[in-house]
């Protein structure tokens, strides 16, 4: 999935950082992905819209990253 293709995380960060690119993506996802430099597998993954699979792929891409805490009830009780 990698090699000559750009990373999924890199693409998502760039999309979040560049409102013009994000606008183009939202207008025509397939065209934006075709120009993205992502592997065909990653393009399909993003087209699927499956957040869990996207996060799993990101976890593979950044195996050392620590993630995903969710506030619990006691957070709210003390607020």
């Amino acid at each position: 999935m990698r090699g000559e293709h750009r990373g999924l995380g890199e693409f998502l960060i760039e999309l979040g950082e560049n409102p013009g690119q994000l606008r183009r993506y939202r207008k025509d996802r397939r065209a934006a992905l075709a120009d993205s430099g992502l592997s065909p597998e990653h393009q399909q993954l993003l087209l699927s819209g499956d957040v869990k699979r996207i996060q799993a792929e990101l976890q593979r891409e950044y195996p050392d990253a620590k993630v995903f805490l969710l506030p619990g009830w006691d957070d709210v009780m003390s607020a």
Binding site: I13, G16, L58, Y62, A65, K66, V67, F68, L70
Partner: peptide, 21 residues
């Protein structure tokens, strides 16, 4: 809550560090 957001934070400011530990 997300590893990618953590990576992005550290790019915005190399003096950023997580309190996750």
């Amino acid at each position: 809550t997300d590893a990618l957001v953590a990576l992005w934070m550290e790019r915005l400011n190399p003096r950023a560090r997580s309190l996750q530990d």
